[in-house]
Write a protein that binds this DNA or RNA. Structure first.
Lengths: 218, 218
DNA sequence: TGGCGGGATTTGTGATCACATTCACACGCG
DNA sequence: CGCGTGTGAATGTGATCACAAATCCCGCCA
């Protein structure tokens, strides 16, 4: 409407919108079942329906959003079975990523992980659900980036994305009083260079958080 | 242009196009590096650019197609490292799927798997690369469907999709003279109800086919 | 009072157009 | 003869419009 510069120097509008929504979904800023409309998002972001459509289509393809029979999109309300599957995927993939990262995990990385863990503790203290999820995922992503395995990491992030709204709904009501205890075990295994222990710690960390989800009556 | 029925009774145009392209890519009907244009596909399928855009965006999101910096889409030319990662993902995920399917794998299923294997052998005899890939994937999918784990199966299919063009490029030049020998081991393990053997056979089958890919100079 | 029917509104889908960038190819200079 | 360069074609992006289906909501009838 205002500026008709169809291809800005930076990134395309649909791509910016995609990234923004993806981030919001992954860290749990949206609750399960929240509806999104093309015109609503378009007006909200000052663009036309076209880029919104592309961004949503992309997110639906990744499982970040679900599509009703009539084409409406909303954040997913996961069934118990689906949560179990996603937890199983995390338990399969993330130990592998951590093992691949291990040979390249030096002191500087472990220090950064510790710092993220501290920020996580602060989010816990402030009862900040979104902050908790974000720092938790940051912890894992920072470690896995060292694996130099972008394709595997992408799958892991897709799983996180699908769990985003559900994680928020859970962590929003479960009273937490400390950061994940398994994070310390992960750090210890990294320092020791102990791959079996690392795999176990990562698997425990990943399945522990999600065990609670499936137990509640979703 | 002709029929202005924006929402047909069946499925949306972009969805039909998506499925068709996805199938073509997965079974290796397209070679790596093949370029796809919006207007070209639109004209080819008798629709406007809009549904084509959505179908392509979706396929790109799934990794079935890659996006150049200027927004052009083409089938991926995978690096050695990426092939290794995708093979590792298959090796992680598919044994799990087979193990989940095992308790529900009765005679009827094993018979169907044998039939698919026979069709696979015919494809080998006819030097039909696409037929080989299709029956091979059918073998795996038919087994995994019994796992009743749609989220995990979806991830596996996404991996297959990413490997599609590359598999074609490989199987098109490697002379095969028999169906995968591991398929018989899978069937034997299913009949015996032996989960460890099944996991091993599936892992071997999955990594065996792709080991050749990484060895060639991609 | 509760469910149901019908009209108004909302919403997704597809087509078409304008525009800027990118690509391809051939021409011309060194 | 090789290589950069410029021009025209091809391509992706975004906006806008028309249309039909889905949804919502309010009033009516049992």
């Amino acid at each position: 409407m205002t500026t008709i510069s169809t291809r800005p120097i930076e990134t395309a509008a649909h791509d910016r919108l995609y990234r923004q929504l993806r981030q919001q979904i992954m860290v749990g800023e949206m609750l399960p079942g929240q509806a999104l409309t093309l015109r609503g998002l378009a007006k909200q972001h000052g663009v036309s329906m076209t880029p919104v459509r592309e961004a949503l289509r992309r997110l639906v393809a990744e499982g970040a959003l679900t599509l009703t029979a009539s084409g409406r999109v909303s954040t997913p309300e996961l069934s118990n079975e689906r949560i179990e599957e996603l937890a199983a995927l995390r338990a399969l993939i993330e130990p592998e990523l951590s093992a691949r990262a291990l040979p390249r995990a030096h002191f500087a990385l472990i220090d950064r992980l510790s710092a993220i863990n501290t920020a996580n503790a602060e989010a816990v203290a402030k009862q900040d659900a979104v902050g908790y999820i974000r720092t938790n995922l940051d912890f894992h992503r920072t470690l896995y980036l060292r694996a130099q395995s972008p394709a595997i990491l992408a799958v892991a992030e897709t799983v996180w994305l699908q769990l985003g709204p559900t994680m928020r709904a859970l962590y929003g009501r479960v009273q937490r009083n400390e950061p994940p205890r398994h994070h310390r075990m992960i750090l210890a295994a990294l320092r020791a260079g102990d791959e079996p222990a690392l795999r176990l710690a990562v698997r425990a960390d990943v399945t522990n958080g999600l065990r609670h989800l499936a137990q509640r009556g979703w």
